[in-house]
Design a protein around this nucleic acid. Structure first.
Length: 467
DNA sequence: TGAAATGTTGGGGCG
DNA sequence: ACGCCCCAACATTTC
């Protein structure tokens, strides 16, 4: 049926590059005016491990891409199963000459791609990070394991400044090939669920919010972050474009605080590449602590305490608010991620890997490298990690970063009428006040699961002694 | 991308 | 006027 065009067909195998703009894999596949078959494999292995909301987000952005492709006379072809079988099968079915795909650095992806490459002509294209992990290394050729020198090296490299590539209005005609439907799960609210929405969000962020980022990014009660984590996670937004906009904001900032703010956001993008690089060079971090001497801490927290943490019933308002935000929306403010992670690991003395797993089971932006890096950092067991004695006080963190208490109140309706002075320490409310508010601590809202000062001492000992 | 413990300083109350 | 004490405010050290 399609024999007459076979030699001219390339496959664009879409993975974490669900976009048209600034997509080097698509650009390469279209090179020389070749017909391109865009294909996405719904990978059973990945999907079965995915958070339901993350899956729903993926489906939504795939449906968006489908529409954009159809508008350009093309079509998104969706298949299900194991990519190692499906891609070669698809190549044989269509007689395509090559498969172009953006290189993905996670251990699972590398194994998957190796399996595919043994069977077909698979061409990797860079672009998941601005710089390939192997490009950023120390003078003696080793990968950086500390963020600051990594970021210095990153900034010292010549930025790939090429003009933004835009897809053609009309794609070369392709044969009609059967495609599976994309499930119709409604997308989780609050995320830019298409390429166009993500580009709009980026423009809005870099025109205003980025210049207050230095301070506002830590405020739980202010919308001061980019909220671009999910589009970046799935490549709905190009990381190069995001970095390009950050650099532009740095160079055109009206004053020094604004410039520093924009620089701080660029550093966040570089953190993303740092942890991808760590996972690329040290894939074993997914199963154990990077620091060998911290692999045998005597974790003492109970299953009940873990469950209380997951459900937002620890009795510390800022922790519980954040955990309920995660469960309800699939997203959590970054400052809150650090607070709840510190609480799980250092107040409850529960293995950081439990937290890592729960985040992956719930975050729409959940990404193995960033998530693992963040948890190892908090637990103090990773590369460039927080020192073991850096323990967040959930009350002080609440007072500092949710001074109005509005973040707590928006996720803990039972504390709605608690006055500001008690909002982060409701157990200190006089009983008479508790009664008049109809909010009895220990009934309507839990007492603190652990005493912070006591828990802190226990953790300092556990980390010092180890097991 | 901490927080607690400990140390130092200086103003003000008071005999 | 002076010494003493208290303690807030800030600095440094420690975990």
């Amino acid at each position: 049926m399609i024999d007459q065009v076979t030699s001219e067909i390339n496959i664009w195998w879409i993975r974490r590059d669900i976009r048209l703009t600034d997509n080097p894999a698509l650009q390469r596949a279209l090179d020389g005016g070749r017909a391109v078959l865009p294909v996405f494999i719904l990978d059973d292995t990945l999907l079965s491990a995915s958070a339901p909301k993350r899956k729903a987000y993926l489906y939504a952005v795939l449906r968006g891409l489908m529409i954009e492709l159809e508008r350009r006379g093309s079509k998104l072809i969706v298949r299900s199963g194991n990519p190692c079988h499906e891609i070669p099968k698809f190549v044989h079915e269509t007689g395509a000459r090559a498969v172009y795909a953006m290189e993905d650095y996670s251990p699972y992806s590398r194994q998957r791609d190796e399996c595919v490459r043994r069977q077909v002509n698979l061409q990797w294209v860079g672009g998941q990070t601005v710089f390939h992990p192997s490009l950023i290394q120390t003078v003696d050729g080793r990968p950086y394991t500390v963020f600051t020198p990594f970021s210095r090296a990153w900034k010292a490299l010549p930025f790939p400044n090429q003009a933004l590539w835009e897809p053609p209005d009309q794609f070369p005609k392709i044969p009609n090939i059967i495609s599976n439907p994309v499930p119709l799960d409604p997308p989780p609210a609050g995320f830019p669920a298409s390429e166009v929405r993500s580009l709009e969000r980026l423009q809005l962020f870099v025109s205003e919010t980025i210049y207050r980022y230095q301070e506002d990014r830590n405020r739980l009660d202010i919308d001061g972050t980019s909220r671009l984590s999910a589009p970046l996670r799935f490549g709905v937004l190009s990381p190069r474009l995001a970095a390009l906009e950050a650099l532009r904001a740095i160079n055109t900032a009206p004053d020094e605080p604004s410039r520093r703010s924009a620089e701080t956001w660029l550093n966040e993008l570089i953190w993303r590449e740092f942890y991808q690089s760590i996972l690329y060079h040290f894939p074993h971090v997914l199963t154990q602590a990077f620091n060998p001497s911290l692999r045998s801490i005597n974790w003492q927290g109970s299953a009940d305490e873990l469950q209380a943490w997951k459900e937002g019933r620890t009795g510390y308002p800022v922790v519980d608010a954040a955990m309920r935000q995660l469960a309800a929306t699939g997203w959590m403010h970054n400052r809150a991620r650090m607070i709840v992670a510190s609480f799980l690991v250092k107040d409850l003395l529960i293995n950081w890997q439990e937290g890592e797993r729960w985040f992956m089971q719930n975050l729409v932006d959940g990404d193995p490298s960033a998530n693992n890096g963040g948890w190892q950092w908090t637990a103090g067991v990773g590369t460039d990690a927080a020192p073991y004695f850096r323990i967040f006080n959930p009350v002080l963190q609440g007072k500092k970063f949710d001074p109005s208490g509005n973040y707590v109140r928006s996720w803990l309706p039972e504390l709605m009428h608690v006055p500001d002075e008690y909002i982060h320490t409701p157990w200190w409310m006089p009983l008479s006040l508790q009664q008049s508010l109809g909010c009895i601590i220990g009934m309507n809202y839990p007492l603190p699961l652990v005493d912070h000062a006591t828990a802190r001492e226990r953790t300092l000992i556990a980390y010092r002694v180890r097991a």
